[in-house]
Nucleic acid binder design. Sequence first.
DNA 1: CAGTGGTCTAGACCACTGA
DNA 2: CAGTGGTCTAGACCACTGA
Lengths: 233, 233
Amino acid sequence: MATAPYARVKQFLKDGLQQGVWPPGTLMPSEAELVTQFGVSRMTITRALNELRSEGLVERVQGVGTFAAHLGPVSSSLTLRDLHEEITGRGHRHHALVHLAQQEPATSALAQRLCLATGAAVFHTLIVHYENGVALQCEDRYVNPACAPDYLQQDFTQLTPTHYLLQVAPLWEAQYAIEADRPTAQEARLLGIAPTDPCLIIVRRTVNRDTPITLARLVHPGARYQIHGQFKP
Amino acid sequence: MATAPYARVKQFLKDGLQQGVWPPGTLMPSEAELVTQFGVSRMTITRALNELRSEGLVERVQGVGTFAAHLGPVSSSLTLRDLHEEITGRGHRHHALVHLAQQEPATSALAQRLCLATGAAVFHTLIVHYENGVALQCEDRYVNPACAPDYLQQDFTQLTPTHYLLQVAPLWEAQYAIEADRPTAQEARLLGIAPTDPCLIIVRRTVNRDTPITLARLVHPGARYQIHGQFKP
DNA sequence: CAGTGGTCTAGACCACTGA
DNA sequence: CAGTGGTCTAGACCACTGA
């Protein structure tokens, strides 16, 4: 099949942006101009331009016009994958040891982040994940019981908490912070590394419709884990 | 103004997905059904569904139907910001020291990553960035001279390499890897930290239309730098 | 005011999938 | 075959911006 007209318009504009025909911030052709230039209907032009906007390549202002975006790629495709899928996807073996799975009263700091009362019951799991027998991640997780009342009954040697929670509440919002630090003494022991070894640490708070679901601290030995991704225009 | 019809359809479907009306993988209403249900034209329904697809919430298969996506949020909005903007955006002071800015022959490993011949000339800069006088990033960067012939003539105490290169080649593609490791002896000295201090390290390779532009190693003292972001459905 | 983008309609033809 | 999504047309009315 020949390329669809909207795709040809889009590629034409993309090429021009890449070649500097419209430097960042400058005015691009209006919809009407593109309609006559390509001989297609306005809806087709609109589609091409709106897709470029959603990809961050142009900015559009009603009543004014369409402008080349200022920055190149500003958003990346950092992917949140279930660790089990990630490991088995590499053709490797995954297993997990559950060091702790219990109900606890929430400390005040924790209660605040999960929007609970201090001392309210929370679920707490501490699990170490292995790739081909080597410790890859220490997962220290707190879960809001209201969101997943059966959380502690799961067998986390077979099903990761992430996978289970995605089933219970499929639509997530999450904030995360990525940093490098030393592990705690307990984490070093569980991961079998020295207390001075650098670790890549992700702290992630997950929310569904304004209800906090879970708070996780994921600690990875620096030598064994990398986050890969790419920016695309 | 009242909410646009396409936005109402979109919100209706989003709510249903969030409440589990269509569990992951199940068939959702067809365009025709939504047309009669909402009493709008098919283009309007199509727009709502296509935007949900581009947000990763549904999957559409021609001839078969629209399905609720399997995973929740899979992509994040990790933002690539110019460090100068990031620091001044926090209301802090940024300055940079240029420790090296010269032309060198490429080693074979470097030549390969920049698609040059071994021994071909490359530009090399080594710059330390400070936030309010504290070292925040050690930026070790190689640049393909063909993409930015005037690179070494820039004053990098005033303009970051990232900012300059975005001007020269506004549209980027980049692959990156994030890891935790110890700094090299030179990096520890330049950053004023101990050689055993954990660092957050980003290695980024930037390409424009299949031509490699630059390769950068960005080393941040672990205690001073975090990457923040969020997943949104 | 003329020009811009935002949104919608009521049709159309098509390729594809599965019974 | 009937049903699905992919794409397009030729109009329309509107809100907005800046002269």
